[in-house]
Amino acid sequence: MMVDLSAIASSWPYLMRGLWFTVQITVVGVTGGIVFGSLLAVARLSRNRLVATLATAYVNLMRSIPLILVIFWVFFLVPWAIGWMTRSGRPVAVGASLSIFVTFVLFEAAYYAEIVRAGFRSISPGQYSACEALGLSKFHAYIYILFPQAIRNVLPILLTQTIVLFQDTSLVYVISATDLLGAATKIAQRDGRLVEMYLTVGVIYFLFCYAASQLVKQLQGRLAYGAR
């Protein structure tokens, strides 16, 4: 069987549109996931039992169901939920892209929450005391002192999780969204170019992830305090 490079060339713009959506999901998932995940982490460490329990329950729930199921649920249930909330009684279409963004933020937040929580745990209790002794408010202490240290302590793990997220975006095929893999699949089936398409996207996924993992390696060396 011959590999036809022209098949790749002619479908390149479409693949790139798919890649662009993949990147969008990743960026939204990482940003939203870290922000929401950090709030969950702080909530889990809270002295308020109710807040801590709710956050823990959320994180454990999300971590015990497959992503593919959550993608499915959000896509089919959110329109109903919005319809119910607006009392219109009928589902409101939210579109595949929006439902995917929401899914990734909600789902990845649970994983980022655990990583950020480990980051907070790695800070010595004396740092909390120092913040208190200086009269810093809880908010200021978290924003300026604790969060930067927590993130820094777990930055390599955060990046690793981000690589996983990048790969997980391919699961949006279940709702026929056109991410990188979705685009490749559609062309592969239309043109009968399965080998070319799947090889190409494989290479693209590999290049992205390899570059990111090299970055992680570099960061690990440079992260020691004072080593700059």
């Binding site: 010595s124 120092a130 300026y144």
Partner: peptide, 23 residues
């Protein structure tokens, strides 16, 4: 404190200014 508890991610100057500006 016994173990100093300076903020490791901030410079010496920022360590001494942070509470002044925030508190």
């Amino acid at each position: 404190f016994q173990s100093f508890e300076l903020f490791p991610h901030l410079t010496v100057l920022s360590n001494v200014t942070i509470a002044q500006t925030k508190v």
